[in-house]
Amino acid sequence: MSRLLILSAGAILALASVASAAPAMQPLKISKECSQYTGQTPSFCTITESNLAAIPAGTKILYYGPVTGSSLFGSSTTVIAVGNGDTAVGYCVTYDTASPMQGTCAFHAGSGTLAGFQAVVKVTVDDKQIYHWDGGYLLGADEAAK
């Protein structure tokens, strides 16, 4: 019986150390304007500010649907297209008729300078129609593989 307790305690400690070894996400803050967003596939917005050098101002965020033209909500595969093969892929869902508007985007893969990119952000919009992504990210193939 005592051997079983010792083995169980050892397994719990091993799992706890694996869970604590997860890499810490870094803060991500991005602002974008969507004056050229049409609701067609793809539609895009343009980043105006970013605290991540790998995703500079001027970067396009492309939305591929399936739902890009609804006035109620958006549901879309999303690509951050920096250029020269530097991209990140994820999915965004927004509740556009909520007061205030709200949403979430999660990114799970990247290429080029965004290799290993993972992020989860909360989406909001201000009274000037500037959209804000606030959350956290991991960057780099080594970090994503941990």
Rank of each mutant, 00 (worst) to 15 (best):
S2P: 00
L4T: 07
L5R: 13
S8P: 00
G10M: 08
G10T: 04
A11F: 10
L13W: 09
A14K: 01
A16R: 05
A16P: 00
S17T: 14
A19T: 06
A19N: 07
S20T: 14
A22N: 08
A22R: 09
A22C: 07
P23G: 02
A24I: 14
A24V: 12
P27L: 03
L28E: 03
L28F: 01
I30N: 03
I30W: 01
I30Y: 01
S31L: 05
S31W: 09
E33F: 05
E33N: 08
E33R: 12
C34I: 08
C34M: 07
S35F: 10
S35T: 13
Q36D: 09
G39R: 08
Q40W: 13
T41L: 12
P42S: 12
F44C: 13
E49T: 09
S50V: 00
S50D: 03
L52I: 06
I55Q: 03
A57Q: 06
G58A: 01
T59P: 03
T59R: 11
I61K: 03
L62V: 05
L62S: 15
T68D: 13
T68R: 11
T68I: 07
L72D: 09
G74T: 02
S75K: 11
S75C: 05
S75Y: 08
T77H: 13
V79E: 15
V79G: 09
V79C: 14
V79I: 15
A81E: 14
A81H: 14
V82E: 08
V82N: 06
G83S: 13
G83M: 14
N84R: 10
N84G: 02
G85F: 04
T87Y: 13
V89T: 14
V93R: 10
T94V: 09
T94G: 06
Y95T: 15
Y95N: 15
T97Q: 13
A98K: 04
S99E: 14
S99Q: 13
S99N: 15
P100E: 07
G103Y: 01
A109Q: 11
G110S: 02
S111R: 04
S111L: 02
A115D: 07
F117D: 00
Q118M: 09
A119G: 01
A119R: 02
A119H: 00
V121A: 08
V121G: 04
D126F: 07
D127Q: 10
K128V: 00
Q129G: 05
Q129R: 02
Q129H: 06
W133D: 08
Y137T: 01
Y137A: 01
A141R: 09
A141F: 05
A141K: 13
E143F: 06
A145I: 05
A145P: 00
A145G: 03
